[in-house]
């Protein structure tokens, strides 16, 4: 139903460019109070256009995971607003956010992505069942084929390797054709070969199906698969890099890590 709305909006305003997939306006996130407060995000302004693959990098403690959680609606920012396809999701109730997560947002975590008691196919179809829709098994099979695991549909996560589990997680994230896929260190626990497969999958989803992917990572090689790399340091944006290659990314990371705490760079 949401697709027809989107199509209608697009048809009604053919001249306007489509709204960016994700937009953050002065997003802040603070934990704790008073002197003991931790400022995880200090005013982030960022626009992520549709069909882009963005990597978010930064030294540990820079607020990467917090950024992802706020952008995905998993956490509510202390101040500022987050817009998903032009719609402000910051003020939405938990129930509405949950419904978003079923169909318009997908994510992949570093580990513990799948419910151990369900089979691969059931895990992939979980968001649909939660939404109360009839499970579309053919779609599930198609997505599993996309990630190369169509023969493992009836296995349980416990019987799969780490890489295979991540691929199932990506399949689940993609099955509802979401507007944005958020990934928090999806290749962190994988070896280089498997990591490359997973990243290629994500890139294919962007190039082929027009999905938008936002990926947090610490690996320069992973970042090189993205269109753009955005750097975070001390809770604020610290520069970006377009069409990145691993060496340049690594160099920037070293420079960021070497900087004394408290200084921030301007947004490019």
């Amino acid at each position: 139903m949401e697709k027809t709305t989107k199509a209608k909006t697009a048809a009604a305003n053919p001249v306007e460019s489509p709204a960016p997939a994700v937009e953050l306006r002065d997003v802040r996130r603070r934990y704790g109070r008073g002197d003991a407060a931790v400022h995880a995000l200090r005013g982030i302004d960022l626009t992520l256009p549709r069909g882009s693959f963005t990597a978010v990098m930064g030294p540990s403690g820079s607020g990467k995971s917090t950024f992802l959680q706020c952008a995905a609606g998993l956490d509510r920012p202390t101040a500022g607003s987050v817009l998903l396809a032009g719609e402000d999701i910051t003020g939405l109730s938990e129930n509405k956010l949950t419904k978003l997560r079923r169909t318009r947002i997908g994510f992949v975590f570093q580990s513990f992505n799948l419910l151990p008691s369900l089979t691969v196919q059931q895990n992939v179809l979980l968001p649909q069942r939660l939404a109360g829709h009839r499970p579309d098994r053919r779609r599930a099979a198609a997505v599993l084929a996309q990630v190369g695991l169509e023969r493992h549909a009836r296995r349980r996560p416990g019987e799969l390797s780490g890489g295979q589990q991540q691929r199932v997680a990506i399949a689940r994230a993609l099955v509802t054709e979401p507007e944005v896929v958020f990934a928090d260190e999806p290749t962190g626990a994988l070896d280089t070969g498997t990591a490359r497969e997973v990243l290629a999958l994500l890139r294919r989803a962007v190039d082929g199906a027009g999905a938008t992917v936002v990926m947090v990572t610490h690996d320069p090689v992973a970042a090189s698969y993205a269109h753009r790399v955005v750097f975070l340091a001390d809770g604020a944006l610290a520069g970006e890099l377009s069409a990145p290659d691993p060496a340049a990314v690594a160099e920037r990371m070293v420079a960021l890590a070497g900087r004394p705490a408290g200084t921030t760079g301007a947004v490019a």
Binding site: E94, T98, L126
Partner: peptide
């Protein structure tokens, strides 16, 4: 609690 959190992240409402 971890399992419940995952269900929530994937889109289960508190009522579900």
């Amino acid at each position: 609690s971890r399992e419940i959190a995952l269900l929530r992240a994937v889109g289960a409402t508190p009522r579900q």
